[in-house]
Structures are given as structure tokens and as C-alpha cells.
């Protein structure tokens, strides 16, 4: 009789303990009104010893490799602000890859041979042909894949007459060696001018608030958070943040706190407002990617 009660109590206790579940939670769905600070964050530089990540970033604001596309037309208005002041530059490039001719170094695909099928003009200014340089992983030597069309006005001595007009259009003209001319306009976004407000200190209530001009809330903006190498001023684009172009963003503080100050003494934050167009005419061997962007890079001392 006693055993029976014993087992009953154990059965009851077992039911109570193992039969307990947490009440079901309610999942709250984010509404459009509540996602003003919605952001996607992506790691760009996965290894800070790999110099290839810093290739070209400082001048173009383009952190991605462009070798995925067959034909690229790229125009940019770029501002770089540092302690010394702000430098305005304009850049126009056109690159046409021959996807049938890959270039590999040590088995690694670094790009394709380029072609120069005619004359390219931006706002009636004829683009020059210059070598397309790609920095091979951890190597100081550049390897030329061929030539690309190029116009640049800025700090260097060789200054082209091309000027990137914001919130306007750039006339693109292609006069092929064979066939009829191609003309179209590349729209340019409103100029973006950023400002960084730093409150607190690293690992001590640090707040990095990013503000920028002429917000276009219906667009997204890209923010590249980079670290400037103490020794050579190369910039590693560490993270890309995509968020609403609403004029203000609170940078997740962990992104800044974790940048090692012994190696990187400055932080470069790049605001990119871009118009882009992608056309795929018969497979990725003939696709065309048109990119027009307003870029402002601000370099500050690491907080």
C-alpha cells in the first residue's frame, strides 16, 4: 500500500516537473514605422593581414571587387575629409572585361583581360586609357589586366577636365570601332556631406553618431567603416552598413570598440549614396553594371 502511494507521488512530481513548458512567446513584427534605424551590417575585410582588401578603397569608395561584372561604367563624386581639410575629386571609369580570358595568379582568379572597343566620353570629355591595376593578396606588385577608360580630377597633378555634378546627369557616349554610337545619361544622386559626432570614449559609453545632408528616405545609404593603418595610411574597409537614407545613424558601438588601436590609429567612415543600374543582356558575359555615387569619406582619430 505504501509503495503504491510512493509511486503515485513520484508520478505526480514527474508530471509537474517534466510537464512544464514555458508559455508561448508573442513574436512582434517590425513595422515600417519602427525600422528607421534598420540596418544590415556586413564584414568586408575578413582578414586584416590581407592587403588586397585595401585596394583602391581610399580613392574610389568602392570596396567591392568589380570582377563579377562584364561591363562596368562607374562615375563618382568623392570628398575626403580629414584633419587637413576636405579634398573634392571626380572620377569616371569604364571597364570592359573579356570574360573568355580569365587571368589567374597561383591558381587564384584575379580578373579578366580587358578590352577597349572604341572611344568613351563622359560629359563630352574623352576618357583616357590607363592600366587596370589589381593588388594581389599580400603582394606589393600590381598586375595589369589590361586597359580601362578613366577620367579623374582631384589632388594629383594630372587633372582631367571632368567634374561630377551632383543631383544631375552625366552624358555617357560610346563610339565603338564597329557599329553605331551609344548615348545615354547617367543620373547622379544629391551630394552627400557627412558629419561625425563622437560622445564618450572607447569602451566607456562611446556613441558615434553619423549625420549627413540632403536625406532621401526612400533610398538606402551605404556606410563603410574602415580602419586606417597606423604605418602606411592604407584603409581597410572593415564593415559595410546599409540603412535608410534618413540623415542620421547611430553606429553600433561594438564595431568601433573592437578595432585594435595598436595597428589602426584612425577610423575612416565613408557615406555612399548611389544610383545603380544593372542590365543583363544574354548572360553574365554581357551584363552591364552602371554605378553613379556620391561619396564622402571622413577620417577621424580612433576614439
Amino acid at each position: 500500500m505504501k509503495k503504491q502511494y510512493f509511486y503515485k507521488y513520484y508520478l505526480l512530481a514527474g508530471l509537474l516537473i517534466y510537464g512544464c513548458n514555458k508559455p508561448a512567446p508573442t513574436e512582434l513584427i517590425q513595422d515600417s514605422q519602427t525600422t528607421d534605424d534598420a540596418a544590415q551590417v556586413e564584414v568586408i575585410t575578413k582578414n586584416i593581414n590581407d592587403q588586397s582588401y585595401s585596394n583602391g578603397y581610399d580613392s574610389t569608395g568602392v570596396a567591392d571587387s568589380l570582377i563579377g561584372h562584364a561591363n562596368i561604367i562607374y562615375v563618382s563624386g568623392i570628398k575626403i575629409t580629414s584633419k587637413e581639410g576636405t579634398l573634392n575629386t571626380s572620377l569616371a571609369e569604364a571597364i570592359f572585361f573579356d570574360k573568355s580570358k580569365p587571368v589567374k595568379v597561383g591558381g587564384l582568379l584575379i580578373g579578366y583581360r580587358t578590352i577597349t572597343p572604341g572611344i568613351i566620353q563622359f560629359n563630352t570629355h574623352r576618357a583616357r586609357l590607363i592600366p587596370l591595376r589589381v593588388r594581389i593578396r599580400n603582394s606589393t606588385a600590381d598586375t595589369s589586366l589590361g586597359l580601362m577608360y578613366y577620367l579623374y580630377s582631384g589632388k594629383r597633378m594630372l587633372v582631367d577636365p571632368f567634374q561630377y555634378e551632383y543631383n544631375s546627369n552625366i552624358d555617357f557616349q560610346f563610339n565603338p570601332l564597329i557599329g553605331s554610337n551609344v548615348n545615354f545619361k547617367i543620373p547622379t544622386p544629391p551630394e552627400i556631406t557627412g558629419n561625425i559626432i563622437v560622445e564618450g570614449k572607447r569602451n566607456n559609453n562611446l556613441k558615434v553618431i553619423l549625420e549627413w545632408s540632403h536625406p532621401v528616405p526612400e533610398l538606402q545609404i551605404e556606410i563603410i567603416i574602415g580602419a586606417v593603418v597606423r604605418t602606411n595610411r592604407n584603409i581597410f574597409p572593415l564593415y559595410r552598413v546599409k540603412t535608410k537614407d534618413d540623415g542620421k545613424f547611430l553606429i553600433p558601438v561594438n564595431l568601433i570598440n573592437q578595432i585594435p588601436t595598436d595597428r589602426f590609429n584612425k577610423i575612416a567612415i565613408t557615406l555612399i549614396r548611389k544610383y545603380e543600374k544593372y542590365e543583363n543582356n544574354g548572360g553574365n558575359r554581357n551584363d552591364i553594371y552602371i554605378l553613379s555615387q556620391s561619396v564622402h569619406t571622413i577620417i577621424i582619430d580612433s576614439p
Binding site: 512544464c20 514555458k22 508559455p23 512567446p25 508573442t26 513574436e27 512582434l28 513584427i29 517590425q30 519602427t34 525600422t35 528607421d36 534605424d37 534598420a38 540596418a39 544590415q40 551590417v41 556586413e42 559595410r240 546599409k242 553600433p252
Partner: peptide, 18 residues
């Protein structure tokens, strides 16, 4: 009162693009 509880879950506006 172990079951006197209510939980709300939601996704943050920040996400990681892998």
C-alpha cells in the same frame, strides 16, 4: 507562480549580412 510570465520576442532592426 512559475507560469505567471509573458515573453515577447522580436527581431532587431539590425541584422548581419553573412
Amino acid at each position: 507562480t512559475p507560469a505567471y510570465q509573458k515573453e515577447f520576442t522580436f527581431s532587431n532592426s539590425t541584422s548581419i549580412l553573412l
